[in-house]
Design a protein around this nucleic acid. Structure first.
Length: 501
RNA sequence: CGGGAUGUAGCGCAGUUGGCUAGCGCGCAGCGUUCGGGUCGCUGAGGUCGUGGGUUCAAGUCCCACCAUCCCGACCA
């Protein structure tokens, strides 16, 4: 029985949600705000977001996109222009109705000034398609203006009923790409290209294996022709949508009159896409890799990649050890530009804490590599190197430290991906009989690959009976006709079913 | 918005059938001592007992309402 006076991470088997919150708290990532459903992202959590931004933004630039910024407020009427979009988004929105406060004469404090009622109410953006498309209609005249490839880093608000730190909060940070193209092929190509950018990022940087595929009619973005997504599996077997990419077709172009003169002088509507990922990725990172000791961060995304913990007894030792530790830190920063980044190598020289205390603290924060440097090591020009994911420890020569650290960082990156992949594979199953399907989801769950017919009723009924929903129809699957898991009618493809966040 | 649980210091908790100045551990501050896996000792700071009503000589404790958080649904990235 753990000593309750020491803060411990709840073993995830007991209560996965509580464990998730404990990891966030003990790592210092975020906390609930005084505003219901909102989240305060602490510096350490935000540093992860900054790394995500940095890497993704570079990819967006590489693929020809430019950043821009559009207003937080959207005229209410914009949301009613695209019929399907209304269905999906006219709900759960924050609405601005007034523009002034005043001091109440009867002493109730600050109240809304009824005289300051807005002509047209403003919706706090739940997504920016409408306001951006309205702008695009003025920017696009000719085929020479296409493709128009925009991206915006912003915050958005969706007044969801139930919230959860990072996974679903009332306000969240994200990136939304919005593009316009000459024809359907180009729009489709863009949609797939950006989904691939997300997939590579999730797998290579976040070390999270994902299944990419198409969303069912029921799950697609309101107003889109087709929606594609990447789905990751969390350690409780539930799915988390980690990114989406939509082919919007001409739906918005027709409503917002986004037209251009093509090469033959004909007036045409543009073909559009939109795609986004959010701070939810941080939630995916936490749920995907953390263990009972706390957060585990893949090196590529970790704000602090290496921590050096010096160990000493006497004042004399302290000076010697700190000097060597500083040399080590410099050597590390010199060898790799990545490690040279401010804060990527941290020397923990606090002298009021014992080494053991520091070990635990940095483990909770998920720092991939720890270097322990004490008098015994100094004698032998050695340093102890410890990896966060396995806890494995070994002594190496100080002069070898930079190359050893770089190797270990990439090894950890690979090992985390492998571990998550093994988990995903071992919790995935092809299922062809509904009884087995139901048993699967009343047990440990995971991803079920089952055939599904085109009827939306089957999809709905399955989710009602098992709580599992269609996450996507994966791109990668064998040509293998079968019969719908529920109704038994012929079906061409398997869908991935899972309980989802 | 329904069903369940919880709410006492930053965190984790104790507080008896209502009763005296509301306690403990961790953490925090100071001093000393330690430092190779959460050192030890002393001193100290820190509280609208979730909020608002009510019952009572007396409420952290009983009653009512509300609020917040967590879990399970509906909604969703």
């Amino acid at each position: 029985m753990p000593d309750s006076s020491q803060k411990r991470i709840t073993p995830r088997a007991e209560n996965y949600s509580q464990w998730y919150l404990d990891v966030i708290e003990s790592a210092g990532l975020a906390e609930h705000s005084v505003v219901k459903g909102c989240m305060v992202i602490k510096p350490y959590g935000y540093a992860i977001w900054e790394n995500i931004q940095k890497i993704l933004d570079a990819e967006f630039k590489k693929t020809g996109h430019e950043n821009a910024y559009f207003p937080l407020f959207i005229p209410k009427s914009f949301l009613s222009r695209e019929a399907e979009h209304v269905e999906g988004f006219a709900k759960e929105c924050a609405v601005v109705t007034h523009h002034r406060l005043k001091n109440d004469s009867s002493g109730a404090g600050v109240v809304v000034d009824p005289a300051a009622k807005l002509e047209e109410e403003l919706v706090v953006r739940p997504t920016s398609e409408t306001i951006i498309h309205d702008t695009m209609s003025r920017w696009i005249q000719s085929w020479r203006d296409l493709p128009l490839l925009l991206n915006q880093w912003a915050n958005i608000v969706r007044w969801e009923m139930r919230t959860r730190l990072f996974l679903r909060t009332t306000e969240f940070l994200w990136q939304e790409g919005h593009t316009a193209h000459e024809n359907e092929e180009q729009a489709e190509e863009e949609t797939m290209k950006m989904l691939e950018v997300y997939k590579k990022f999730a797998q290579d940087c976040l070390a999270l294996p994902v299944i990419s595929g198409q969303k069912s009619e029921r799950e697609k973005f309101a107003g889109a022709l087709r929606t594609y997504a990447i789905e990751a599996m969390m350690q409780d077997g539930k799915a988390l949508q980690a990114g989406t990419s939509h082919n919007l077709g001409q739906n918005f172009a027709k409503v917002f009159q986004i037209r251009y003169l093509d090469r033959a002088g004909q007036l045409q509507h543009v073909w559009q896409t939109s795609w986004g990922v959010s701070t939810r990725l941080i939630g995916a990172l936490i749920m995907g890799h953390s263990d009972d000791k706390g957060l585990v961060l893949p090196p590529k995304i970790a704000p602090i990649k290496v921590v050096i913990v010096p160990i000493w007894k006497s004042e004399e030792e302290r000076e010697k050890v700190l000097k060597a530790a500083l040399r080590l830190k410099e050597a590390l920063s010199e060898i790799s530009p990545e490690l040279g980044v401010f804060g990527a190598v941290r020397l923990d020289d606090r002298d009021h804490l014992t080494p053991g205390h520091k070990f635990h603290e940095w483990e909770k924060k998920g720092v991939p590599v720890r270097l322990e440097l004490g008098p015994k090591d100094i004698e032998k020009n050695a340093v102890v190197i410890v990896r966060r994911d396995t806890g494995e420890k070994k002594a190496i020569l100080q002069s070898d430290a930079p190359s050893e650290v770089l190797n270990l960082l990439s090894e950890i990156q690979g090992a985390l991906f492998q571990k998550a992949s093994d988990f995903l594979v071992s919790h995935s199953r092809k299922i062809d009989h509904y009884e087995e399907f139901k048993a699967f989801f009343s047990g440990d769950g995971g991803f079920a690959y089952s055939h599904l017919c085109d009827s939306p009723d089957c999809e709905t009924k399955i989710s009602e009976e098992t709580l599992a929903t269609v996450r996507c129809i994966p791109f990668e699957q064998k040509e293998e006709t079968g019969t719908c898991i529920l109704c038994g009618k012929p079906a061409e493809k398997r869908a991935v079913f899972a309980k989802a966040y």
